[in-house]
Each structure stands twice: as C-alpha cells, then as structure tokens.
C-alpha cells in the first residue's frame, strides 16, 4: 500500500526541462539537455549510457552540482517548494533530512579522516536534537539494518579500512538514518554481492511501501531495475529517450534500450564476442 502522506496535490518531485552544462577548456559539455519527469511515492529507475547525465541529474536535484556549471530548468520543485529560488541555507537543511542522495562514489564521499560511525552520528546530530548515546545506538542499528554483520567493528573503522561493499552500505546507512522523503540512490548496490544487494533493496523497498518515500534508483543493472522498480526512464546523451513500466523493459522500442538488453552476458550463453551497440548519431540529437 502506498501511503497518502502528502498534503498537497503536487508530486513529490517535479523536474521540467532540466539542463546542466559544464564549461571546459575544449568547449561546453552539455551533461543534461532538457530532462523532465515527475516523481510520486514510487520507485523510478534511471538507466542509460555511461556519461548520459544520470548522476548529474541527481546532483542537480540535490543542489550538489559543481559551482562552475550552469543549471537551468523551467521548473524544479520538491512538493510545492521551488528548489531553484530556495535560499542556500534552506536547501542545505532540506538535504540530508528530507532529501538524500547515495552517491555513486562512496569512498570519495565519505570523509577519509573520520570513522564511519562518527560520520553517521554527526549526520544525525546535524538534523535532529538527539543525545550522543542515542545517536550512536541509532547508527549501530542502521548499520545492522544494511546487513553489516559486525556493526561495532565497522562503526570504529575509517573508510579506507572497509571493503567496497561495506563502504557502500555505510553510505546507505548515513543517508537513511534521518528518514528522507525523497532518496536518490546512484548505483547504490553496484559494489555489493548479489545476496547483500537484494537485502539492501529490500530495505529501500520497505521504505517506499511503508513510509511512502519516493525513490530514484539509478543503475546499470537492467535485471535489477526491471524486477525492482515501478517505472524506468532510459537516458542517452543527456536526454530521456524512452520511458516505460519496469516490468515491460523487455518490450523497449528505442534501439539503444534494445541493444542494451541484448548485450548482457548470461550463464550458459556462449557469445564471443558479445554483441555491441552500433550507436547512431541521430540518437544524440
């Protein structure tokens, strides 16, 4: 059951004609070129070409775009709050508390000189009035919830002392600990082995179903997206080229999406070399 927690009629998130451009030495890089979608309390998958602007779309929604980039949109709103005109301070308060993003690069985004536990505790204490011991208990519970088998040990480790998958789960724990209404998860499980992956997805799934959280799930894993999400957006060269119900991903029409589905290696199939995409210039128009 989806809970009707929202008070206004506005979708949880509205994105209209979002554009992100980076000036570089060799000219402008148009990372996002007119992306539009609305998100309810659902699981929306974003798949697409590497470099197609998935992470930059997420970062723009969060307000985490690098300072020298140019951002524009006809509308960018969280509920009925306009994110484009919101003062920086208000945006920061929103971030971490009501909207959170699990970044694609966990080690890069964790603070290297602070233990994992301390980082989660500090996140909590920035957004809630809570004692240190209560915060520690919540942090440990959260680490346990993301299937860290030895929470006490990991709590006191530094980011370079944990495995790839543990770092990713620490990041997930940190982002979930305040109970956000909107979560953008950028490749949240790419470093996890499949069994843990499914358990972490189970947690995210529950948050959507029980608490009515909205989830944007960016992933390269087509099998995972089609079995986990409600809807899927397919991006190519900064634009959305196709949108469809996740369960019908195999009926995709766009040649890029069709090509993607065809080049997955599977157990038992013996295709050497694997089929690759013949990218057409018109896909990027």
């Amino acid at each position: 059951m989806r809970m009707a927690k929202q008070v206004s009629k506005a979708p949880l998130l509205t994105v209209e004609d979002l554009r992100v451009t980076f000036p570089t030495r060799t000219g402008d890089v148009q990372a996002v070129r007119g992306v539009s979608f609305a998100l309810g309390r659902e699981r929306l998958g974003i798949v697409g070409e590497s470099g197609s602007g998935k992470s930059q779309t997420g970062r723009a929604i969060m307000g985490l775009t690098p300072g020298h980039a140019k951002i524009s949109a006809r509308k960018l709103a969280f509920g009925d709050r306009d994110l484009l005109t919101m003062p920086a301070r208000e945006r920061r308060q929103l971030r971490g508390k009501q909207v959170a993003m699990i970044l694609q690069d966990p080690k890069y985004s964790l603070n290297p000189v602070m233990t994992i536990g301390r980082q989660i505790v500090e996140t909590l204490r920035t957004h809630e009035r809570i004692s240190t011991s209560a915060a520690k208990a919540r942090a440990l519970a959260m680490l346990e919830a993301v299937q860290i088998s030895d929470p006490e040990r990991v709590f006191s480790l530094y980011p370079h002392e944990v495995s790839g998958g543990m770092g990713q789960r620490a990041m997930i724990a940190m982002m979930l600990v305040c109970g956000p209404e909107l979560l953008i998860a950028d490749e949240p499980t790419s470093a996890l082995d499949v069994t843990v992956q499914l358990e972490v997805l189970g947690i995210l799934d529950k948050l959507v179903a029980d608490r009515g959280m909205g989830l944007i799930f960016i992933s390269h894993d087509l099998r995972l997206v089609s079995s986990f999400c409600d809807r899927v957006i397919v991006m190519y060269a900064g634009r959305i080229v196709e949108e469809l119900p996740a369960a019908n991903l195999s009926d995709a029409q766009h040649p890029y999406t069709r090509g993607l589905l065809n080049c997955l290696p599977t157990i038992g199939s013996d295709r050497h070399p694997l089929p690759v995409l013949d990218r057409k210039p018109e896909w990027a128009l």
Binding site: E49, S50, S190, L260, C263, P265, V276
Partner: peptide
C-alpha cells in the same frame, strides 16, 4: 565493469 552500463560492459569485456 560493475560501474559500467551493459553496452560499455560488453565492449570492455570484448
């Protein structure tokens, strides 16, 4: 290739 989309994964594996 876990950070790559399926098409680039296929290219890299090849």
């Amino acid at each position: 290739t876990s950070a790559l989309d399926a098409s680039i994964q296929a290219e890299i594996l090849n």
